[in-house]
Amino acid sequence: MSEPIALLTIFVLSVFVGFEVISKVSAVLHTPLMSGANAIHGIVLIGAVIVTGHAEAPTVTVLGLIAVLLATINLVGGFAVTERMLEMFRPRQPRPVSADQQRGTAA
């Protein structure tokens, strides 16, 4: 298989997987799901690392580093915020008042 065809194959199959994998999801999970998907595309960080690592001219390097910064924020922040949203799905037990709630009541 030539490389373009191989890439096209991967693309088409991924489209179907992407559709199938979330075909049944309750509305309650729409926001976390979107946030999780948002984190996943932060993997563009890998591309940013590769182009920056191969950069020579200073302007290109700086641009590359900006891309690294933005992609890292997307990837790390995306997973962190999704994790936080999902705290509500922890099995409900009497739990101590978190710092977060104290802030909430004080505000």
Partner: peptide, 20 residues
């Protein structure tokens, strides 16, 4: 970049994101 992981991850998000 001929990078398979970016292709797969991006496509997954593109497809599931459209459906969502």
């Amino acid at each position: 970049l001929s990078n398979t992981l970016l292709l797969v991850a991006g496509t997954l998000v593109g497809a599931s994101g459209t459906l969502l």
